[in-house]
Simulated scan of single mutants.
Amino acid sequence: MTEEAAGTLPGDGRHMGRFALRRRSGRSVRAGQRSVLAGLALPSIVLMAAINAYPLVFALVQSMHGGGLLRLGRFVGFRNYLNVFADPAFWSAATFTLIFTLCGVFGSWIVGFGLAVLLKPRFPGRSLFKVLLLLPWIVPIVVTSMSWNWLVATPRSLLPSVMEGFGLGPVMFLANPAIAMLTVCLFKIWISYPFMMMMGAAALESIDKSIYEAATLDGATPRQQLRHIVLPMTARSTFISWILMTMFSVNDFATIYLLTGGGPVNATTSLIVLAYRSVFQDFLPGYGIAISFAMTAVLVCLSLLLFRQVRKMDL
Rank of each mutant, 00 (worst) to 15 (best):
G68Y: 02
M64S: 14
P43G: 10
P43A: 08
S35K: 12
V76I: 07
G66P: 02
G32L: 08
G73D: 01
N80H: 02
M48H: 07
G77Y: 04
A50S: 14
G68T: 09
I45L: 15
Q62R: 02
R22T: 09
S92H: 11
A41K: 06
T101Q: 07
Y54S: 05
V76E: 03
F58G: 07
R34S: 04
L102D: 13
I45Y: 06
G73A: 05
L98N: 08
S92A: 14
D87S: 08
S25G: 11
V46N: 02
L82G: 08
W109T: 08
I99M: 14
A20M: 09
L60A: 15
T97N: 00
H65F: 09
V29D: 13
T95Q: 11
F100N: 00
A20V: 10
L56Y: 02
Q62S: 03
V57I: 13
V84S: 04
A86F: 06
I99T: 06
H15Y: 10
L21H: 12
R27I: 13
L82P: 00
Y81H: 04
A41C: 10
V84M: 08
F96Q: 01
A49E: 05
R27G: 12
S108H: 11
I110F: 15
G13M: 06
T95C: 13
P55R: 01
V111T: 09
A50R: 07
G13T: 13
G17Y: 05
F96I: 02
A86P: 04
G32A: 07
L21W: 15
P55L: 04
F75P: 00
H65V: 04
A50M: 15
R30N: 07
G11A: 15
G11D: 15
L69S: 09
V29T: 14
R27M: 13
I110V: 15
I45N: 09
L102S: 11
R18G: 12
F106C: 11
R34M: 04
G77M: 01
R14M: 12
S63Y: 01
H15S: 11
S108I: 14
S35N: 07
F100T: 06
S25A: 14
A41W: 07
S28E: 12
V111P: 00
S44M: 10
R23G: 12
N52H: 11
